[in-house]
Amino acid sequence: MEWFRFALSAALTLFGLFVLVSAVLGVFRFRYALSRIHAAALVDTLGILTMLCGLMVAQGFSDATWKMLAVVGFLWLTSPVASHLIGRLEVTVNDDLAEDMAVADPALVREEKESED
């Protein structure tokens, strides 16, 4: 039983490490910031889920397990908002956006940059 628990936890942790390494690799290899957001979001969702699930399996049921579930829940709530805000920042600040990628709706980009709210 002990070894089964260890095998499960090790499988989850090693998969989580693979996800983390691919995310960092993606952040290095992609060329534009908007693509790097996709790579970075791997860490916040799948990476932390598998790593913390591996830790929870290793610990059994204790106070720390529920707290780790709360950490994962909080991160899942806030990480998409953070990515959205970073995307908005990139669209507003970057002046060469149209040269790097195909902009589907230039009017929206202009409105983002110039709205006087």
Partner: peptide, 24 residues
């Protein structure tokens, strides 16, 4: 990272990696 958005992405990711390290 040539632009500020790259830096903010990297800082956010560093925070999450540190959270994983603390739980470990």
């Amino acid at each position: 990272g040539p632009r500020i958005a790259d830096r903010v992405i990297a800082v956010n990711m560093m925070g999450t990696l540190v959270v994983i390290a603390i739980c470990t």
